[in-house]
Each structure stands twice: as structure tokens, then as C-alpha cells.
């Protein structure tokens, strides 16, 4: 069975390559990608180089992009500083795992669960609910922060993980994204499962979700970035609840003396979501959901 699938993939891969592609077009695209790629890679190149620069190079004037005498000093400085934080550093990490994980997994599951009926069922109120979601994305987040803070205080969940996780679960973007992808699934797919006696939850979990894997992996990337960048801001007062991001900013905020550690912090803050991004993206690109499935 597996072999058959493999052979079919190989086959379709070959066919796909040959269709409607000219040499001149390919060359043009390669050149274009090369030029633009260099410009887009700049921030990445700079983060890496700065993290490896010794202090004198960090303060060199005029500044250079590339490092001349790479060193790992910045990282060892950072690790020393990590050891005398108020709360043990592992506590910040745990907080980040809970907040980022909760906000990401919670949003992906809850939003997907709501997106399925909105995309594939017919029920009164469906259109207006979706319209609300679409409109909500266009209201400036700056001014809704204050009322949101009030609501969170009224609920009494201020100064807890919930104050960050629950609002994150209610973002409009995830539902919108998931609904758009689910709309593309052929109805026949769910119909046949229904004939087999599967309930709606089961259809959602074992048929719809696997078939929109690229969508929820992409949503996970967005949500991870969003939650990872959260410093806890106004909601978390207790030092024991604050996330890694906050602790790292505190360390690097020490002015010139900590510029080296600061460069290492910038690197770590970028490296974590990039790692997550690469894991998710390579999975997005591997799923060959559609071929043979849509009729």
C-alpha cells in the first residue's frame, strides 16, 4: 500500500514538472529570487553576526554588518546574567511554555472547531457570526486594549495566565483562516463519513483536521509568534508569572555594559520562533493532501 502511494507520488511529481514550464521563465524566476532573497535575508544575517561580535566590534563606528573575530562571549555573558535574576530562570521558561503553548494550542483547537460548522454546516445565524469575526479584525487593537483590561479585571483573572491565554483564544484571524481552508474541502468527504455513522465531532477531528493540516500549521506559526512576543505587559504583576521575553528584555536593558548580552538576547528571541517556523513549514510542505482526495 505504502509503496503504491510512493510510486504514485513520484509519478505525479515528474508529470508536474514538465507541465507548462519554459526554460527562459525558470531562469528569470531564479535570478529574481536571488536578488530579492539577498535583500530579505539582511535582518537574519545581522542578528547572527551581531550575536557573534565581540564588544569592540558592536560599538565600532561606522558599523559593519559582518563580524570579523567571531566569539561566543556574548552568550556566556548572558548565561552568567541569567543566574542572578530575581526568580530562577527556569521559572520564566515554564511561564513562557504555559502561556505560549496555551494560547497557541487553545486558539488553534477552539477556532478550528468553530470554523468547521461555519464552513460546512447550515444553521441560522451563521452568516452574521462570520461577519462579526471579519469586522472585528479591522478594529484598531490599541483602543480595545483598555476595555479589554477592564473586562479582564471584572472577571478577576488579572494577574494570572488566563489573562493572556483566554483573549488569545478569541483572535479573529485564526477562525477566518481555518474557515477559508475548510470551505475548499469537498462535501462528499464528510457525507461519506456521515453515512458510515460518524458524529460531527469525529468528522471534525479525524477527517477535516488532517485534511487542512497546512492551514493549522500556518496558524500555529502566527499564534506562536504572537504569544512568544508577549511580555505579559499590564496583566501580570507577579514576578513568578512573567514570561521569558520579559526577563530577557530586563537583562538586555542594562545599557552599554550589557550590549553583548543584548545581542545574544536578540538572537535567542529570533531563534526560537524561527526553529518553530522551520518545523511547521517543512510539515506544511510535505503534506500532499489534495491529490487524489478532491474529486
Amino acid at each position: 500500500m505504502a509503496e503504491k502511494v510512493k510510486r504514485r507520488r513520484k509519478h505525479s511529481y515528474k508529470r508536474e514538472k514538465k507541465l507548462n514550464r519554459s526554460m527562459a521563465g525558470n531562469t528569470l524566476l531564479f535570478v529574481l529570487m536571488g536578488i530579492c532573497g539577498v535583500a530579505m535575508a539582511l535582518p537574519l544575517v545581522m542578528v547572527i553576526n551581531n550575536a557573534l561580535k565581540p564588544l569592540d566590534e558592536l560599538f565600532q563606528f561606522p558599523p559593519k554588518i559582518f563580524v570579523r573575530n567571531p566569539t561566543l562571549e556574548n552568550f556566556s555573558d548572558l548565561f552568567i546574567l541569567m543566574n542572578d535574576t530575581w526568580v530562577p530562570f527556569s521559572r520564566y521558561m515554564l511561564n513562557t511554555i504555559i502561556i505560549t503553548g496555551g494560547g497557541m494550542v487553545g486558539h488553534v483547537i477552539i477556532a478550528s472547531l468553530a470554523a468547521y460548522p461555519l464552513a460546512k454546516h447550515n444553521f441560522p445565524g451563521k452568516k452574521i457570526l462570520f461577519l462579526l469575526v471579519e469586522l472585528s479584525m479591522m478594529f484598531s487593537w490599541t483602543v480595545t486594549q483598555t476595555p479589554q483590561y477592564m473586562i479582564i479585571s471584572w472577571m478577576g483573572i488579572n494577574n494570572s495566565y488566563w489573562a493572556l491565554i483566554l483573549p488569545a483564544c478569541a483572535f479573529g484571524m485564526g477562525l477566518y483562516l481555518m474557515k477559508q481552508f475548510m470551505e475548499q474541502l469537498p462535501d462528499s468527504l464528510m457525507e461519506s463519513a456521515r453515512l458510515d455513522g460518524a458524529g460531527e465531532f469525529r468528522i471534525f477531528w479525524s477527517i477535516v483536521m488532517p485534511n487542512v493540516k497546512p492551514a493549522w500549521l500556518t496558524l500555529a506559526i502566527f499564534q506562536f509568534q504572537q504569544m512568544w512576543g508577549n511580555t505579559g505587559g499590564t496583566f501580570l504583576r507577579d514576578e513568578q508569572l512573567k514570561p521569558l521575553q520579559y526577563a530577557l528584555y530586563q537583562i538586555s536593558a542594562g545599557g552599554a555594559a550589557r550590549a553583548g548580552a543584548g545581542a545574544a538576547v536578540t538572537f535567542i528571541i529570533a531563534a526560537v520562533p524561527i526553529t518553530f517556523f522551520l518545523i511547521c513549514q517543512s510539515n506544511v510542505l510535505e503534506t500532499m493532501t489534495s491529490s487524489g482526495m478532491k474529486e
Binding site: I110, A111, L113, A114, Y116, P117, L118, H121, N122, F123, P124, K126, L129, L132, V133, S136, F139, T144, Q145, P147, Q148, I151, M155, L166, P167, C169, A170, F171, G172, L175, G199, E200, F201, F204
Partner: peptide, 23 residues
Amino acid sequence: SKASYFMIAPYFILFFFFTVLPV
């Protein structure tokens, strides 16, 4: 459509409190 409402409920309850109400 009971099943549909069941499925959208968790999201839309949160959505109402943390997004619609603030707007």
C-alpha cells in the same frame, strides 16, 4: 443544528467577551 452550535460555542463565548465587547 445543535451539534453546530455546540462546536462554535467555546470560540464565540470567548470572542464575545474579549473581542466584541471591547470593540
